[in-house]
């Protein structure tokens, strides 16, 4: 089905454009302006050119934070997307079980992010927290405030707990949109469960999975409140992700210029990855293969 060509459709988009543009473009321009100046206070500023960019790009702590961030977001996507899809597949299609599992799944999403970190501090405490006591009871030495690996496990666990339901909810909504006729046809053909998943359910979920992957990538790459409250970026710098380092720079040292330059580089990295994901995911399974020249 070819869409209708009509530039008057712009009038329908205009309200969205205006509402978002004011909040988006003016602050973006201002941050770009900050990034090329040394700002001492209101009205007191000196143009410094690309000095801040040079400083930020040569900052080895930023390189470390970027590598940590990439590993973290990669891990989060690798765990949450398959797990979320598996949960959606396991959920009942009708009956009271639907309401119960939907509501329970949504609960972690509804807690403000700073509270999540705080609750997990206690939850993981080896003396008074449920999971901490449980792990120690199994005889595993686990100490997230001092051992970097344990801190990583904790932060990833918290992130998976918090956000996998989002993937599951989206995937479930996508699954329910598949007409029953498809499954009947598959049953008549004697298709295995795997074949049904691979050739019917997965392709039909592509649209929602694009949303899920991109949302999870963007939000996990920008994650701040939960790990900051839980570990403060420590022990040492082992869980200092990009946003945590950025806030240290912007608020802790009050270096507006370098922090602005950092923000722009950060934004460009997210933009690049999101664009590549967006392009790649749109094309998977649509027959528009690389090298398929027309």
């Amino acid at each position: 089905m070819e869409k209708w060509h009509d530039n008057r459709a712009w009038f329908l988009v205009l309200p969205v454009f205006l509402m978002v543009a004011i909040s988006a473009i003016i602050p973006l321009m201002t941050v770009v302006n900050y990034s090329v100046q040394d700002i001492f206070g209101p009205g007191q500023r000196v143009f410094v050119g690309i000095e801040w960019f040079r400083e930020v790009l040569g900052d080895s702590r930023l390189h470390d934070a970027l590598i940590r961030q990439l590993i973290f977001s990669g891990l989060v996507l690798l765990i949450e997307i398959p797990l979320g899809v598996a949960i959606a597949l396991a959920m009942p299609a009708r009956g009271w079980g639907v309401s119960v599992s939907l509501v329970l799944l949504a609960l972690p999403l509804l807690i403000p992010w700073n509270v999540i970190g705080t609750i997990w501090i206690i939850f993981m405490r080896p003396d008074i927290g449920l999971l901490g006591v449980l792990i120690n009871g199994l005889g595993i030495p686990f100490d997230h405030p001092t051992a970097p690996l344990d801190a990583w496990v904790t932060v990833v666990l918290m992130e998976v707990w918090h956000w996998t339901p989002l993937v599951a909810l989206l995937a479930y909504a996508g699954l329910r949109a598949i007409p029953d006729a498809y499954f009947q046809a598959a049953r008549i053909d004697g298709a295995s469960a795997w074949a049904t998943f691979r050739y019917i359910q997965l392709p039909k979920m592509r649209g929602v999975l694009v949303i899920a992957v991109l949302l999870r990538f963007m939000d996990s790459f920008l994650i701040y409140a939960e790990p900051f409250v839980l570990t403060g970026g420590g022990p040492g710098n082992s869980t200092t992700f990009l946003s945590i380092y950025l806030v240290k720079l912007a608020v802790g040292q009050f270096d507006l210029g370098p922090a602005a330059a950092f923000s722009i580089i950060y934004f460009l990295i997210v933009l690049l990855f999101s664009f590549v994901f967006y392009q790649a995911l749109q094309r998977i399974g649509t027959g528009d293969k690389p090298g398929d020249r027309r």
Binding site: M29, T30, V32, N33, Q37, P42, G43, F47
Partner: peptide, 9 residues
């Protein structure tokens, strides 16, 4: 003024 414009930007 808070937008901190410069000529190059």
């Amino acid at each position: 003024e808070w937008m901190a414009w410069t000529l190059p930007t």
